[in-house]
C-alpha cells in the first residue's frame, strides 16, 4: 500500500503487471497442486477400499475371512457364492432387485419433482405464510422415523394396500430434506433478475419454472435424485415391516441370508456386493450426468 503511494509514477506500471498476474492466475487460480493430487488419491483410496474389501470377503470362504493376517486379494469363490445367492428360493433375490428398482425409482422421480416445485416456490416466490410453511417443512425432517412404523402400518391397512409395494413408496414421496436442499440451492444459484425478466416478458410461473428455473436447478436435482435413489435402495426398517414376505426389496431379502443361529458371512458379503452393484452402475451413469450438471452451473456462472 505504502509503495503505491510513494511511487506514483510506477503505479501505472505495477497495475499492468498486476493485471498480467491476474490473467495468469486466472488459469492458476483453480489449478491443482501436487498436494491436491495427493489428497485426492488418498481420498479415492479410502472411499473405494471398503468396497474392495467387500469383494475380497465375498470371494473367499468363511474360514479365509477370519484368517490372520488377512488376505488382500480376491479369492476364487465369488461365482459359487453368487450362484448360491440366486438359488435360495426363500430369499427371492432376483425379484427383490426388481422391486427395489421400482420402489427407489418411483420415489426418486416423485421426490425430485415435488421438491423442485416447492423448493423453487420457497426460494423465489413471495406468498403469505411461506415462512410458517417452510418451518413445517424443516420440522418434518426432525421426526424420528423409527417409531412411525406402527401408525403407518395401521394406515396402510385402512387403505387396504398393506403388503404391496405402494406401502413403501407413498410415505416417501414427500421429502423435507429435498425441499430444503432445493430451496437453499435456488436462493444462491438462480438470480432474481432472471425471473423478473421472464415475468416482464409475460411468462406464467409454471413457464418460468420449466424454462428458467429447472435448468438452473439441475445440479441440485441431480444430487437429490442420486441420494434419494440410494437412500431408498438401502432402506430397510420400514420395508421389512410393511412388505409381505413374498414381495421383498433387496435389503429385506439380504436380511434373510443369515439362517437362525448361524450366519454365512461370505454369502452375506456376496449378497451385499450384488445389492451394491446396481447402485454403482447408477452412480457411474447418473454420476457423470451429475458432474456435468455441476460443471454446467460453473460455465453459466
Amino acid at each position: 500500500m505504502t509503495a503505491v503511494v510513494t511511487e506514483p509514477e510506477t503505479g501505472q506500471n505495477s497495475k499492468k503487471t498486476l493485471r498480467r498476474k491476474v490473467v495468469e492466475s486466472n488459469t492458476q487460480l483453480f489449478r491443482a497442486s501436487p498436494l491436491n493430487y495427493l489428497v485426492l488419491v488418498i481420498t479415492f483410496f479410502l472411499s473405494v477400499f471398503p468396497l474392495y474389501w467387500m469383494l475380497v470377503m465375498a470371494s473367499r470362504t468363511n474360514d479365509e475371512i477370519v484368517q490372520m493376517p488377512p488376505s488382500f486379494v480376491p479369492g476364487s469363490n465369488l461365482g459359487t457364492h453368487v450362484e448360491a445367492l440366486f438359488d435360495q428360493a426363500d430369499v427371492l433375490f432376483a425379484k427383490s432387485l426388481m422391486n427395489s428398482f421400482i420402489v427407489a425409482g418411483t420415489i426418486t422421480v416423485g421426490v425430485v419433482i415435488f421438491s423442485s416445485l416447492a423448493g423453487f416456490a420457497f426460494a423465489k416466490l413471495k406468498f403469505r405464510g411461506s415462512n410458517v410453511l417452510l418451518a413445517i417443512v424443516v420440522l418434518t425432517m426432525m421426526v424420528p422415523v423409527q417409531l412411525g412404523t406402527v401408525p403407518l402400518y395401521i394406515m396402510m391397512d385402512w387403505f387396504g394396500i398393506q403388503g404391496s409395494l405402494s406401502t413403501v413408496i407413498l410415505p416417501y414421496l414427500f421429502s423435507g430434506f429435498g425441499v430444503f436442499l432445493v430451496r437453499q440451492y435456488a436462493i444462491q444459484a438462480i438470480p432474481d433478475e432472471l425471473i423478473e425478466a421472464a415475468r416482464v416478458d409475460g411468462a406464467s410461473t409454471l413457464r418460468i419454472f420449466w424454462s428458467v428455473v429447472l435448468p438452473g436447478l439441475r445440479p441440485a436435482a441431480a444430487i437429490l435424485g442420486l441420494f434419494t435413489f440410494m437412500t431408498y435402495w438401502n432402506d430397510f426398517l420400514w420395508p421389512f415391516v410393511a412388505l409381505s414376505p413374498e414381495n421383498p426389496t433387496v435389503q429385506v431379502a439380504l436380511s434373510r441370508l443369515s439362517s437362525g443361529y448361524y450366519t454365512d458371512q461370505s454369502l452375506v458379503m456376496a449378497g451385499t456386493l450384488m445389492a451394491t452393484l446396481p447402485l454403482l452402475v447408477v452412480v457411474v451413469f447418473f454420476g457423470r450426468q451429475l458432474i456435468s450438471g455441476i460443471m454446467d452451473g460453473a460455465v453459466k456462472a
Partner: peptide, 12 residues
Amino acid sequence: ALTMAACGSDDG
C-alpha cells in the same frame, strides 16, 4: 413403475 406398483397391490 407406479402403474406396476399399483397392479402389484392385490396380493392379498
